[in-house]
Simulated scan of single mutants.
Amino acid sequence: MQKTALIPYAHLPRAHHDRHVLTSTVDVFGAAHWLLAERAPQRGGDVAPFDALVVSVHPGGDVELTELSAVRARWPHLDRLPDGGFVVATSRTRRYEDADQVQVFDALGRETSSFSVGDAIEHLLVDEAGHIWVGHFDENPEGIRRWSSTGRLTWTSDDAHIPGLYDCYALNVSGTAAWACPYTDFPLVEIRPDRPDRPVTVRANRVWGAKAVAVHGERVAFYGGYREERDRLARGELTETSVEPTDVGLLTLPDGPAPGHRRVVSRGSRIYVQAEPFTAWGVFDLSS
């Protein structure tokens, strides 16, 4: 089976390796970000607000540091807003914490607002216009939704007629559009809320269980799957109604082995993969 190696993309500067990586992401403009704390969070119980450091590595290698004050998220998601601020959200929330689930920080690291987007966050990705896209896993039936950075709901999948939307396995946000591949039927769903004639396009798809998806023109690639297909890289071509498979291979780390425990972020034609100890990102680019 053909193997495709990830290309090294961004590294956490060694000066910050003594801190604990809470989470990491790559934003819509291609900058990589790490949310760091002095120590790992303890399991169970409440989390006292803590100060955190965001280390940003921009395309080209410039490094930027942003101190965030009074972060409250347990097991957080992170992304950057176009104005230089950050969004931090906890994936699980209890009823009395709802108003504090999502924190928005300005470019100086000061909290400007907080709100709730609902429990069970699988993906949280910000688009070029500053909309916050949230895909939920199966303990929350609300599917996929788009929010403003002030907590206003601007789009919901409730009336989108997406078949079998019980768990948003894969979500790709690029520009102001999104692509999703949800459990149980795993269709490829193209979402363009600002296109009035056809905001949602659903294509039948035979690739099950992918955790990431990349799209470039009429081509698509899915990464991940169940059990022995965990490292699968399946490619296909788009038609008006379906994804037609073309080939299947494996995606590996730059030095050859499978990624193992990893994070993935889907952005347009790119799938970013970060393996333990979560200090480096590699990239697969469908357009190259």
Rank of each mutant, 00 (worst) to 15 (best):
D185P: 01
V88P: 00
A280R: 11
L6H: 02
G209D: 13
T93F: 04
V88Q: 06
W208N: 14
D51K: 13
E237R: 15
H17S: 13
P82R: 14
D18G: 09
A32G: 04
D194Q: 12
C168Q: 06
V189C: 05
A221Q: 03
V102A: 06
L53C: 06
W75H: 13
T241P: 05
V117P: 02
D46Y: 03
E128C: 05
E237Y: 00
L253P: 02
A178D: 09
G225K: 06
G130W: 07
D285K: 11
E229D: 15
A204Y: 04
A10K: 08
Y9S: 03
A40K: 07
L250E: 15
H131V: 03
I7K: 15
V265M: 11
V248C: 10
D51Q: 13
A32I: 04
H20A: 13
F278Q: 09
V264S: 14
F105Y: 15
Y96P: 00
A160P: 01
N140M: 05
P59F: 15
G268I: 01
A89C: 14
F86W: 14
L238E: 04
Y169M: 06
R203H: 08
I132A: 11
P59C: 12
A221T: 07
L251P: 03
D106A: 07
T239E: 08
L22Y: 10
N172I: 00
T154F: 08
S149N: 10
A210F: 01
R195W: 05
D285F: 00
T90W: 11
F105P: 04
S174D: 03
D79P: 02
D185S: 14
L22C: 11
L78V: 01
W179I: 07
R146Q: 14
V248T: 15
T90I: 00
A280N: 03
R206W: 02
H11D: 14
W147M: 06
L233N: 02
T90R: 15
T25G: 07
Y272W: 06
D127Q: 13
D127G: 08
S114D: 01
H33C: 05
M1P: 06
V264I: 12
S242F: 01
R262V: 00
D27S: 06
H161G: 05
V213I: 12
A32P: 00
I7Q: 15
T184F: 09
E67Y: 12
S56V: 01
P141W: 00
V283N: 09
H33R: 11
L286I: 10
G217S: 02
H161K: 13
G109D: 11
D138S: 09
R110I: 00
V273P: 01
V200S: 10
F86E: 05
H33D: 11
R262I: 00
L22E: 15
T252E: 04
A32M: 10
V173F: 10
Y9N: 04
S269V: 04
P163I: 09
L81A: 03
V21T: 04
V207L: 09
M1K: 01
R270W: 02
